[in-house]
Design a protein around this nucleic acid. Structure first.
Lengths: 201, 201
DNA sequence: TTTTGCTGACTGACCGGTCAGTTACGGTGT
DNA sequence: ACACCGTAACTGACCGGTCAGTCAGCAAAA
């Protein structure tokens, strides 16, 4: 129907403004006014497009998910080990880390709010499920192609990796420290899945 | 000096009330009034003892830390493997899990607030450092006593375990799910440290 | 003319913190 | 015995500020 090509739809602009506002103020201190300012429109204009703050934020999470899956999607081919490393790096610090660092903090704040709101929980589960699927897929391929140990329990390994990534995220954001977690995870992958490439155990 | 024995000091009562209020309302929705209600005193009475909400909350974290370390402290002796399991269980769901589940959620919310406040970050680091020390100590003992593989990198293993516990905490609270993370961690310990007790690799 | 998109001004609720008092109590002087 | 004072602990009323959401109206597009 409405083939607005060059014209950016207002809702897209709002998502973009929300992103910037979120990075600048964090989730807890995020007000509708902040978003409106970033959008360079008035606060009631925001309420014209989204009835409630909660609705806007949920829409933002949806928006983020489509972008996220676009970005993190692992290449379908290539050595499994390299694909897994790329996946871990992507999850650990997303592309343009300097720009996205603040977003990660904000998303962590969203996580903390999730326990009290089913809809938020559902959105976050989507992220988690997606990441788990990707990891499971890569690990599965690696086992099949012989790159990883044949006796690997794919499900357990995927759970471990995703939990590790979650923990790394949590510690980095909450403590501000990064005490070799990345190296530890890499060591885990080496030790658990491969490296000792003498196929037979 | 002041030998108030049977008389519970008001500040202790306040910490207790804060605990209950935190469990009932969560961190984000916690007001001074909530704490005052739980304490069955007035809000200004609260400000009489603690100038600011932030100060009260920081005091509460300190209070919690002393209790936490009292509770989680692993027994000094016994098989390393059992001590490690106990430590993991304690970190995964603290004693009286039914009573403390809400507190864990609240503490997670505190974590999310930490990036914006150095003092909170410092308190949380104390918890993390304590847990890391305990894990490192148990793993070290296990390696020394031969219960764990001799080629274990103690530091890396401790980092991995603590990160896993963080991740498990995060996922459980934020997603409400518990998809066999505990089993995965146990499998990790089996696979990584022992179980295959054929000493030589 | 109607609809779309927007604005300035506003409301109602909430919340952290303040303040002027009040109560209970333990000395101290008489 | 009684009056007096000081202080710790506490209360009801209130203030300043914030923020989500509302509303009447305006301008441009359809």
């Amino acid at each position: 129907m409405n083939g607005d090509d060059s014209v950016s739809r207002p809702t897209d602009d709002i998502m973009c403004a929300t992103y910037r506002a979120l990075c600048r103020h964090g989730y807890a201190d995020l007000t509708m006014q902040d978003i409106a300012d970033e959008w360079e429109k008035s606060k009631p204009a925001l309420h014209y497009h989204y009835d409630t703050k909660r609705g806007l934020l949920l829409a933002f999470l949806d928006h983020l998910f489509t972008n996220y899956t676009d970005r993190v999607a692992a290449p379908e081919d290539g050595p499994a080990r390299e694909r897994l490393d790329a996946l871990i790096d992507a999850a650990l610090d997303p592309p343009r880390a300097d720009t996205h660092r603040e977003l990660r903090t904000a998303l962590f704040e969203v996580k903390a709010q999730a326990p009290h709101d089913e809809a938020f929980r559902e959105r976050l589960s989507r992220f988690d499920d997606y990441l788990t699927d990707e990891v499971r897929s890569v690990v599965g391929d690696g086992v099949e192609s012989g790159a990883f140990r044949a006796d690997t329990d794919i499900e357990t390994t995927a759970t471990l990796l995703v939990t590790l990534l979650n923990g790394a995220h949590s510690r980095r954001v909450a403590l501000g420290a990064d005490d070799g977690v990345r190296e530890a995870i890499r060591a885990f992958v080496d030790d658990h899945l491969g490296r000792r490439v003498d196929e037979s155990r």
